[in-house]
Each structure stands twice: as C-alpha cells, then as structure tokens.
C-alpha cells in the first residue's frame, strides 16, 4: 500500500458522446518510471489530464499518496506534489526564466495580497540551482524566453517540473519537437529524476526512448488500457502490435 504513489480505479472521461477514456485502472509505484504509449487519440493525454485535474473526470477514483483525491484544478494537483510538463508549452514568452519557473508560486519579500513584493534575487538563485541540478544550460536566464530556441524553451519547462518535483512527475511528449541533442538533454533530466527516486509517467511516441528510459510500458488503445508490460518482458514489435490492435482487445489492469 505504502509503496503505491498513484492509483486510478475505473477512471472514465466522456466528451459528450465520445468516450475518450474508459475504465482506466492504473497503478504507479514509488520510484517507478512508466511510459504511456498509444496511437493518436488513444486517450493518453486525456488520462493525464484527469489525474492533473486540468479536466474533471466523468467517473472513477484517483488515489494519490495513500488517499483518495479530488483535485479541483491543476494548482491543487501541483500543491499535492504532481508536476506536469504539458504538451503545449505552458510558458509565458515575455517573461524571463526565473519568472517562468516560479509562475504561480512566486517567492515574496513582503506579502501585500496581490501587490506582494517579489523576491527576485532568491528566485534567480534558486533558478540557477535548479538548472544546475537538472543539467540544463541556459546562456542568459534574464532574457525573455521568446528569444530562445524551441529546445531551450522545452528545457526550461522540464527544468521547472524537475526542480519542483516532489512526489510525481508527468511528461506529455516532452521531446516531440526537439532535435537530437536537445532530446538527449531532456533524457538526461529524466534519468536524473530516476536517480532521485521520483516516480514519473512519460507519454511518448518514441519507442526507442521508452525502452531506454522506463521500467514499464502501458499501452492505450481507443480510450482503454490494453496492456501493461515490464520492459524486460517485451520488445518493440510486441508493443506495436498492442498499439495497432493486433494483440490485446480486452481491458487490462495496469
């Protein structure tokens, strides 16, 4: 029980008549890295959005850190310790790196409600620390991130997640738009999380990456979990046959 960080039971999401996610039963253990794979529209992102409460689920329960949770929004999920890298970069282009890292959880010198005075120095220092521990190199953190390359922006986004990660990290296709070197950098950050023992759910289309990084692979198809396989027990062809529906038409328990 105490080994389980996240568990979903019968998690279901319908958009009108569309069953985007149907009866997802999923377990994630402490320190475990799990990949979620599947075709476009298989329900991967929907699954994650229910956990992080970006959307409200239609049915089912979510257990996080030993208790049932009903997050009202992504901030509550984040406060509970779930950090997410979204598919669409959740960065403000006109702000610099520290401001983006601390967006919504600013540090203050003086608290005056909405006019609280920011502690810019502390935020900058902690940003540099975070970038150092995640091995992300940003040449000038004081520039607005508008001026940065796609890879650097993604690294900022991931560094934010990694820096504040306390209990669970969720990444939705973190390397989808990146070049080879940038992808390698992101993968290093993920390995760093593994070394720190922080559990992670990784959504990815890149099977090479999945086999490189995670312990277990969960396959989604048409809104259902159809397979949950340990990395050692499976291979690329096997996964593809689950993704395409050659194998596994029954709902599986992940």
């Amino acid at each position: 029980m105490s080994d389980i960080i996240l568990e979903t039971r019968g998690l279901t999401k319908r958009y009108g008549g569309v069953h985007a996610l149907e009866d997802a039963n999923f377990v994630l253990h402490q320190g475990e890295h799990v990949a979620v794979v599947g075709d476009n529209g298989a329900g991967k992102s929907t699954f994650v959005r229910q956990i992080t409460a970006v959307e409200q689920r239609s049915a089912g329960t979510v257990m996080f850190d030993g208790r049932e949770v009903n997050f009202a929004g992504p901030l509550e999920a984040r406060e509970a310790g779930i950090e997410t890298v979204f598919q669409t970069l959740a960065l403000a282009d006109d702000l610099d790196v520290p401001s983006n890292l601390f967006l919504g959880r600013e540090l203050f010198k003086v608290r005056l409600g909405p006019f609280s005075i920011l502690d810019r120095k502390a935020m900058r220092e902690r940003t540099m620390e975070a970038l150092k521990t995640t091995a992300v190199k940003i040449p000038n953190v004081d520039n607005p991130i508008r001026n940065m390359s796609g890879g650097q922006r993604q690294c900022v986004s991931i560094a934010r997640t990694a820096a504040f990660a306390s209990k669970l990290v969720i990444m939705d296709e973190p390397t989808a738009a990146l070049g080879v070197q940038e992808t390698a950098q992101v993968e290093n950050i993920i390995r760093g999380l593994k070394a720190r023992g922080i559990p992670m759910i990784l959504i990815s289309h890149n099977l090479r990456q999945v086999f490189d990084l995670v312990d277990r692979i969960v396959v989604f198809r048409r809104g259902r979990i159809v397979a949950s396989l340990r990395k050692e027990e499976t291979d690329g062809n096997d996964i593809v046959s689950y993704i395409t529906g050659v194998k596994g038409s029954e709902t599986a328990y992940a």
């Binding site: 091995a135 190199k137 040449p139 390359s149 796609g150 890879g151 650097q152 070049g179 080879v180 070197q181 940038e182 390698a184 950098q185 290093n188 390995r191 760093g192 070394a195 720190r196």
Partner: peptide
C-alpha cells in the same frame, strides 16, 4: 546523476 551535458543545440 550528473550525466555529461550536451551542447546548447539550436542556439541561434
């Protein structure tokens, strides 16, 4: 965890 870091790919 300190893997060798890669370059500043895409730096423009």
């Amino acid at each position: 965890m300190a893997q060798p870091t890669h370059g500043l790919g895409g730096l423009k």
